[in-house]
Amino acid sequence: MRKRLYLLLFVGLFLVLSYNIMQMPGKSTVDAPAYNDTTEHYLNESIEETGAINVVGAILADYRAFDTLGETIVLFTSIVAVASILKVADQKKKEDDHE
């Protein structure tokens, strides 16, 4: 009973989301709002400004390199977080064993 209720709820949620998503511009063309001046600039000027023909690489490591620096710091922070959860408790356990 409860499972069916949940299923009904989520099917309803899916229908609402789908109805709303249908309002978005559907045709995937170069006239879509997401394909704006920024994109055009990246596609037209990236060879002159960065020398890389892979535009994704050019944006990743030149136009938005600071963003990528933050990304590597996220990786660093995840290691620190995992180590602070797992390693510290290990040391505590060892100290308890010695006592």
């Binding site: 020398g51 023909i53 030149d62």
Partner: peptide, 21 residues
Amino acid sequence: PGSVLSGGMIPLLMVGIGIKV
């Protein structure tokens, strides 16, 4: 542009990211 030795510092940054990941 188009050869491996191009793009200024982009390949070097990619090496740094690759080591890190």
